[in-house]
Nucleic acid binder design. Sequence first.
RNA 1: GCGAUAGUAGUCUAGUGGUAGGACAGGGGCUUCCCAAGCCUCUAACUCGGGUUCGAAUCCCGGCUAUCGCACCA
Length: 578
Amino acid sequence: MAGDVYERVMDLARRRGFVWPTSEAYGAVAGFIDYGPLGAMMKRRIEDTWRGFFVVREGFYEIECPTIGQEAIYVASGHVKGFTDKMFQCSHCGEYLRADHVVEGGGHCEHAAALDEESLARELSTLPCPACNETIGDVRVFGFSLMFQTSIGPGSQRTGYLRPETAQGIFTDFSRLLRFYRDKLPFGATQIGKSYRNEISPRQGMIRLREFTQAEAEIFVHPAKKEHPNFARYADYRMPLLGYPAQLAGTPAVEMTMATAVETGTVANEYVAYYLALTHEFLTRVGVAPERLRFRQHLPDERAHYAEDCWDAECLSDRFGWVETVGIADRTDYDLRAHAGHSGEPFTVFIQYAEPVRRRETRVIPRMGALGPRFRGAAKQVADGIAATDPGIASSGDGFSIEVDGASIEITPDLFDVREIEVEIQGEEVMPHVIEPSYGIDRILYSVLEHSFDEEEVEGENRTVLRLSPAIAPIQVAVFPLMSRDGMDRFAQEVVGELKRDGLMAEYDDSGAIGRRYRRQDEIGTPFAVTVDYDSLEDGTVTLRDRDSMRQVRLPRSGLARTCSALCAGRLRFDDLE
RNA sequence: GCGAUAGUAGUCUAGUGGUAGGACAGGGGCUUCCCAAGCCUCUAACUCGGGUUCGAAUCCCGGCUAUCGCACCA
């Protein structure tokens, strides 16, 4: 069999309708794919499994925001500025290059990334082009945005961007979500949907797409309370962690429990540790091979400056090596602070103290009765100025002066009192921190395909089998009449109907020899096959065949649907039937 | 994006200027048929657009896609 595993997996995916190049009728476009019938079904099942973890179990409701966002969102998030590479084209060789990289490489400037486009062009003019070695000369440095830009409404008055991540929709709905969750921390929201990045050169099949599906959770927590309320669930969960000190030292990942990971400081806090473990459980549940899964901590210089801790779940691919499939980051209050600053909305939660804090404070109290007649319309401003004055200065007894509208006003002691009063503080406004597990669904789906892909020899013949978990297999049960005659075909059609009525994805096939039909289903990962034979017509039993072991058991037709449902849900193992 | 290489049924492949051929897969049929058996039969392709030529899958140019190297990957 020619080609590496990637080639064989993608060949199968194309042939059998999992993943297709997009719009082939007009020639495909790199960075975009179509999911075929089986791929779309499998993707939906992965997403539904994800919902089972995050929406049902964690209780983080799913929301759905537009894929097009107005410019202000992405100005605030930093994507308009930070998502742009400054590039130029060499006039001699036509090569497109990163302007800041070339300037830094020239050794003239250490902080080229901070320079504006004109300064970069000036620096570049005397440097040799790294591609062709000619002196660059006059060039135009331009920003290449990884965001797809569009315009909203006619006349392009308003710039819009296709979202580069689903997260911002959750952040911009923060106040609504806070009210929905009745003003308490922690809470979380999730979103599954398409995101878009105009990659310069997407060349790794479905690993780097220009349009891809993300499943993200944004969990808002109190910045001083990063103990997860359900941490006990995963405290003893063991998994391999590759922290950054180990990476720098070149030592392998260390298997440890989440409790140990937090105690030793390997993982920053319980929240991050909890979602590392949950992610491990999720990925292995949908079919990522545990021995081809690791969790790698970002190195300090690869981590975004605002992130307190960041880990990637990486799946091992035969061709691509370790592929990032999930990112789990403590993003602190970076996003909310950015949106608060740009929008003017507070983005905070009022946290009431268990006991109000009482404090004696010295205050400067304006005497409004005296201020009003003297200052008339300006009295309010003057009073505010008085109240804001340091009590120490005010209590000297000689009066003081304040500035109102640029004019200095003398405040004599008859205009105010200095008094000690007791104040009661009920609580404080807190800007939550965000814990963000962010899943790349397409990469997960590919990893599962690759990890499930198997070829084995059965009685001298090659058997290709996708060992997909019944939970995500597109077709769950195949039903075959041994021969399409003598009523076996009608019997089998009825069985299909019974299985479908129980919500199972069942498929009927009477074409070709029985062995061929088993192989067809093996190749698309169908975990179970029911065969109707002559005995079925006699005694109403059928055989149920297990994909992985190829073993069969004979079962009565009644109750078959219930058995298959239990097998697919993982409540029952095939071994238990034997 | 730059450079190199490639592109023939769903898949693999033959075809070097003159009728596109095979294998497997797929459809229909036959065969008391439980792991890709056999027999008959059918469907089905020159990546797209220009050019050269009486005539192009074949030669030339360009686009697209794929693979590899470089660059890129917030």
